Simulated assay, not measured.
Amino acid sequence: MSTLALRVLVTGAAGQIAYSLLYSIAKGDVFGKDQPIALLLLDITPMMPVLEGVVMEMQDCALPLLKEIIATDKEEVAFKDLDVAILVGSMPRRDGMERKDLLKANVAIFKSQGAALDKYAKKTVKVLVVGNPANTNCLIAAKSAPSIPKQNFSCLTRLDHNRARSQVAMKCGVPATQVKNVIIWGNHSSTQYPDVHHCVVNMSGSEVPCFDAVKDDAWLKGDFITTVQQRGAAVIKARKLSSAMSAAKAICDHMRELWSGTPQGEFTSMGIYSTGNSYGVPDDLVYSFPVHIKDKTWNIVDGLAINDFSRAKMEATAKELMEERDTAVEFLGV
């Protein structure tokens, strides 16, 4: 067993995603069954009584790997010497709120948290942004932490990736584990592009291209895409709350693969900083790409054929991200 506890921050720690997430991290499902964990839990001051209840429950789980748990409303405490930062907390969109209003509120939060990472966290810290609008929040956090490599920042599109796998699996009548190499391109929003042109489905022991396995091109180019794009809204409509259990599972999947790598021959989707060198995606965006992960380092899967149908959708989501970035930068005054 490693003797040094991994220092893992979860923000928005009194919220419903964190409530589904913290147990999995502390139990060893994410960073390994022999990795001690120190959990740092950050939330806003009015949520501290609720957070104390979460701490009590974590203590009552009697988990052998959980060496320390610190609940705080202070960034200088929460961000100190971090190995991992999972930034879940953000201003939620309220009725009548324009996306621009949401961006303005969140720019301030993620500028502050990026600066706190820069000042207090280890320079090797791995940062996952979950709070929406996740891509642009991630970009602002990365820009606000100039001493930490931009490659250390990512945003969550694994939930969309899992949704896409599951839709294909249900259509084919197989477990989701038998569907691999779906891709989420672009923004974690309704413009994202779930792409199955490089996806394969294991059918009776042999890998079959997704289009051949599904045998319904109209669905794959129509309802499948809109179902994945609109899934978050559909969950809110049904539950009257946003995705929590599935979001927590996706965070665990994202961080586990970042820590231990992607399986041979498989790639996953994550929002990462674009340098303008891959698939014609403009630079200075956090854009979801297909990636391989090894030694805690992601590399974009290059050389995939992109047809005109895919190209148009990839460009549309890039356009939305550029507009979001420009609006956010305007609010920052830089």
Rank of each mutant, 00 (worst) to 15 (best):
L241Y: 01
L63A: 10
F289M: 09
T3C: 11
K33A: 11
E330W: 11
Y120A: 13
I17A: 07
S278I: 08
P64H: 02
T262Y: 14
Q230W: 08
D195H: 05
V281D: 03
V174S: 06
D284L: 03
Y193P: 10
P209S: 02
G222N: 04
A121Q: 15
G15P: 12
H188L: 10
T72F: 10
G271C: 05
N152L: 02
N137H: 09
F211L: 02
V174Y: 00
T3S: 14
A5R: 14
N135K: 02
S242Q: 01
N277I: 08
V286W: 05
M47P: 02
V30M: 01
G173M: 03
D29A: 15
G276F: 05
K100L: 12
H197P: 01
E320W: 02
P175Y: 10
D81M: 08
I69Y: 12
L220P: 01
A305D: 14
S112D: 12
L41E: 03
K237I: 00
C252A: 06
A318T: 04
S288G: 11
G114P: 15
N162C: 07
P64Q: 09
A234P: 00
A14D: 08
L41H: 04
F224D: 00
K122Y: 10
C155F: 03
S190D: 10
G222C: 05
L159I: 07
W259T: 12
I251A: 03
E324S: 09
D284P: 07
I300L: 04
S112K: 15
V55A: 04
R231S: 10
D253R: 01
S206N: 15
S260K: 12
Y23L: 08
S274K: 05
P263S: 15
L159T: 08
C199A: 10
L6C: 04
N187H: 11
L4N: 14
W219Y: 14
A13M: 01
V334L: 15
A318E: 00
D60F: 08
Q264Y: 07
F309D: 05
T136R: 03
N152Y: 02
L42I: 04
G205F: 15
V214F: 03
K150L: 11
Y287M: 09
M48L: 15
I44R: 12
I69E: 06
A318I: 05
S189I: 07
L63F: 08
L304S: 12
A312F: 07
A121G: 15
R93H: 04
A164R: 05
V8W: 09
T72E: 08
P149V: 00
A26W: 09
A14S: 11
E257Q: 13
G261M: 08
T275M: 14
D216P: 00
D195L: 14
H161R: 11
H161M: 07
R256M: 03
K150E: 08
S242A: 10
